[in-house]
């Protein structure tokens, strides 16, 4: 299943990119990410509680950042396994300047397996879109927060 889109975020590209490869930021932005620990260069283990509404599952996940070309491109790969099955998502993020803001163009592939694949067909696409939406929403507020910090300090 494919997800794709473009998100404009009001932050300069260099700052934006730095945030996108910052595990602390990722932990805040990946929906349901409760903890993230470094396991290697650009590799992390994570615990995700993901789902929609009351239907949630706990996934033990790995998060890795690949093909990093700062400040324009990288690939975010998240693979999780849990009682409801497994989730594999990978997304290519391309950053371009949009004035003082940044356009993040993303194309991704999401695959699910096990229980969620066998019962969730009608909601999977919408769920994937929703989770992607949440990711960028959190990212936006994170960038807003970051933008405030230097001014406040």
């Amino acid at each position: 299943m494919k997800i794709e889109g473009t998100q404009k975020i009001d932050a300069p590209r260099a700052l934006m990119f730095a945030a996108l490869i910052d595990p602390a930021v990722l932990q805040k932005c990946i929906p349901g990410c409760e903890q993230m620990e470094k396991t290697g260069e650009n590799q992390y283990s994570a615990k995700l509680t993901a789902g929609v509404g009351p239907v949630k599952g706990v996934f033990n996940a790995t998060v890795s950042l690949e093909d990093i070309i700062a400040p324009e491109h990288y690939k975010l790969v998240v693979e999780g396994k849990g009682q409801p099955g497994f989730v594999k998502g990978s997304g290519e993020l391309n950053l371009t300047d949009a004035g003082s803001a940044t356009d993040i163009q993303y194309t991704g592939e999401v695959n699910v397996g096990g229980l969620i694949a066998s019962v969730g067909q009608r909601m999977i696409q919408a769920t994937a879109n929703m989770l992607a939406g949440r990711f960028f929403k959190s990212l936006e507020s994170e960038m807003k927060a970051q933008a405030k910090l230097p001014a406040d300090s």
Binding site: N111, V112, G113, G114, A117, S118, V119, Q121, R122
Partner: peptide
């Protein structure tokens, strides 16, 4: 079956 071999018509809901 999807392209990973997951059986996505897994119940009588689908």
């Amino acid at each position: 079956y999807d392209d990973q071999g997951q059986l996505i018509t897994g119940t009588l809901m689908d």
